[in-house]
Design a protein around this nucleic acid. Structure first.
Lengths: 217, 217
DNA sequence: GGGATATCCGGCACTGAGTGCCGAATAGGC
DNA sequence: GCCTATTCGGCACTCAGTGCCGGATATCCC
């Protein structure tokens, strides 16, 4: 991702960028929803943003990457939130609280979030492109778990915690997309509670009477 | 996957296939390890198997799919094993036992398995192609969990169980690839035990004293 | 034996993603 | 006005993936 350096620094040297990653993302999202992902070429997206095809690939490595822009940015917020979590909070509680906190969206941002996730969870080419983006997200969780467990981030348990956390969140995302009835964070909290409980007692589907802070008995 | 129908039926009607998915897979695996994934074209693979480029795409939809052939086949064995598991075994125990059982490989198959997983876990283009193949695997677990929980397979908990199960297994796979010290099933059992325990008490990394069948206390 | 039929293969042309290269355009610094 | 830094646009190229069609090779049936 060697995108142009448009860091709000008004006195840069060279030619000013004629677009932005955000602008390309909006154009792509609109075209993808209007006429489908496969029937939209990179040429179309670039033209809609007023730049050339070649310039699109200076902002994003692939056609699919344009839809992962916001998701990739979330990784930074995830790491910041992990750094701010108090040490007394237990590992799985901390993960749940951080993930839920990071996924609070302003009401005006929700429609775009839904549109993006709708595409990601339905278009095969977009599902297929998820891997590298998920990896960075998982690693943020794995690094936190590793620091708590006193183990290296690439060992079994930190790795497993990072990946299962994302897996549970993806189930919550999909459920939110499919039903559209309540807040995203509700599903995230449910899924991460179930994960921390080892999926015990999910037989009823009644989450409200699940024990929040289960301790040694 | 509209591959030729070479179902061991010796008296088919038309022209016999001049290669097989398995043969193409072996050629691809050899070339990928020898000269790298990106530096191997589909033309190269087809030539190594003695067929044309066009024919390769009759056996596999994409260049990456050739390495997922065995993995896709495992899904069938997974479903069969789930059908055979006794009803008295608890949900998460059943999942762990089935997954571990399906992943017992003969010693002579291990080197090829390692080579394939080595590629999958290192080459970005292959990681990126994992999505659809993982989905089918996850769905097999989700369907089983749904039948046990009395819920639909596309609801939150079955979905979460299917995805977190694969996530834990992938952590085990990666650990096995990285260390190469013990059997794959050892790591799988560890990771799925940890998942069923909600990742409690993983601080020590000592798995042997974890309680196997933890029940209500 | 010989046609009818079924299946697979090879080749060609085409679209579109992604890349390397280079010169042009537009800014600030001196 | 010249130098430098940065972005942009265009061109040419490789390669993945697809649609199409004729040819090759098998079995079936008469």
């Amino acid at each position: 991702m060697n995108a142009p350096r448009h860091n709000a620094d008004s006195h840069r040297r060279g030619r000013p960028p004629s677009t932005s990653a955000r602008e390309l993302e909006r154009a792509a999202l609109r075209l993808f929803t209007e006429q489908g992902f496969d029937d939209t070429t990179v040429e179309d997206i670039a033209a809609a943003a007023g730049v050339s095809r070649r310039t699109f690939f200076r902002y994003f490595d692939t056609k699919t990457a344009v839809l992962w822009h916001q998701f990739d940015g979330e990784v930074q917020r995830l790491r910041a939130a992990f750094d701010a979590v108090p040490a007394r909070t237990s590992l799985m509680d901390a993960i749940r609280e951080v993930v839920v906190h990071v996924n609070h969206y302003r009401a005006e941002d929700v429609p775009e979030l839904r549109a993006r996730m709708q595409l990601i969870s339905t278009v095969p080419a977009l599902q297929a492109s998820a891997g590298p983006h998920y990896d960075a997200w998982e690693r943020a969780v794995s690094d936190f778990a590793a620091s708590r467990l006193g183990q290296r981030p690439d060992t079994l348990y930190p790795l497993a915690i990072g990946r299962t956390t994302l897996a549970a969140c993806r189930a919550a995302f999909d459920q939110w997309i499919a039903t559209a009835d309540t807040d995203l964070t509700t599903y995230l909290d449910l899924a991460l509670q179930a994960l921390a409980n080892g999926f015990e007692g999910e037989r009823t589907g009644q989450a409200s009477r699940r024990v929040r802070s289960r301790r040694r008995c």
